[in-house]
Amino acid sequence: MIALIGLVAGVVLGLLFEPTVPLWLQPYLPIAIVAALDAMFGGVRARLEGIFDEKVFVVSFVSNTIIAALIVFLGDQLGVGSQLSTGVVVVLGIRIFSNAAAIRRKLFGA
């Protein structure tokens, strides 16, 4: 419940204030979102399995987004930014899907 409230509050805040993203930060925004989604699904799955831990959740979110952004930043500096973004998205996408599959199994038993 509290999680849903937080999410909605964040969306509302973002839509209300519409903060402008600086140009140098824009390439990292989508990657950061994918990483955040990964952390979120991991948290939901842990919650359903009864092993949720707030510290693990916060740390995994922060480290996920920062590392994903760093990888893309490094790739940009090396000239392989788009390829590394693809790699990050693929890896995180696989994790998101497996977590979503686990959640589905827990919720619907299928």
């Binding site: 509290i2 937080g6 969306v11 805040l13 973002g14 955040a36 948290g43 707030e54 979110f61």
Partner: peptide, 13 residues
């Protein structure tokens, strides 16, 4: 958790 989810929502928005 609340803080993180607010940040996630903010990012998405």
């Amino acid at each position: 958790v609340l803080l993180v989810l607010i940040v996630v929502g903010l990012l998405i928005a």
